[in-house]
Amino acid sequence: MHWTEYLPPLMEGAWVTIQLTVYSTVLGAALAFAAGIGKLSSNWLIKAVSVAYIEVFRGTSLLVQLFWLYFALPIAGMAIGIDLRLPPVAAGVLALSLNIGAYGAEVVRGAIQSVHQDQHEAARALNFTPRQTLWNITIPQAIPEMMPSFGNLAVQNLKDTALVSLISLGDLAFRAEQIRNYTQDSTTIYSMLLVTYFGMALVLTAIMRSLEAYVGRWRTARS
């Protein structure tokens, strides 16, 4: 088999990888905001739930989370009479976003806390409610602070998607493994795999950079 013949199945897998990355990064960002803000809440229940979520998902391996959601959850569900079988895509996206969300939550919390006390005083003097201060003053200033770390997390997430091939999802790594089993052409296949992941990471980094520039445009406007 000529190496160009590997391309169609690899590209098919790459498309699955891209979808997984996009879905789980977006869902992960939402979870990161919810838990990061929740951890700063004055409500102890919200705070406790956020802290528990962050610590559990940072403190266990992604692979175990993935296996648990895909293999263990349905059996646990069966025991209590609920159908908790997840399609592989759902289990994959869920595990990836829960994992990235837990790391992202700490980024969100740190960025929110880094906004200067002066800003809170100005907001209080203008009689904003704490909620208005959070959403109109603090978070808009915190988001540009988060972006470099979010960029790292997104690339990390892209690479982590390779793990979902272990629950038989047809992503890039899964397709590569199939071709290798068939052809035994390890060097070519794995080299192509490396290059494809690297290419996707470059594109993702570029996207995150422009997003960073966009959300921080007030910091760079020229006079």
Binding site: D118, E121, A122, R124, A125, N127, I137, P140, Q141, R219
Partner: peptide, 17 residues
Amino acid sequence: RVQLGMVFQQFNLFPHM
């Protein structure tokens, strides 16, 4: 607080607005 307003030493403007 409605009755009071304050001008700060460090201005404390909102930099993102």
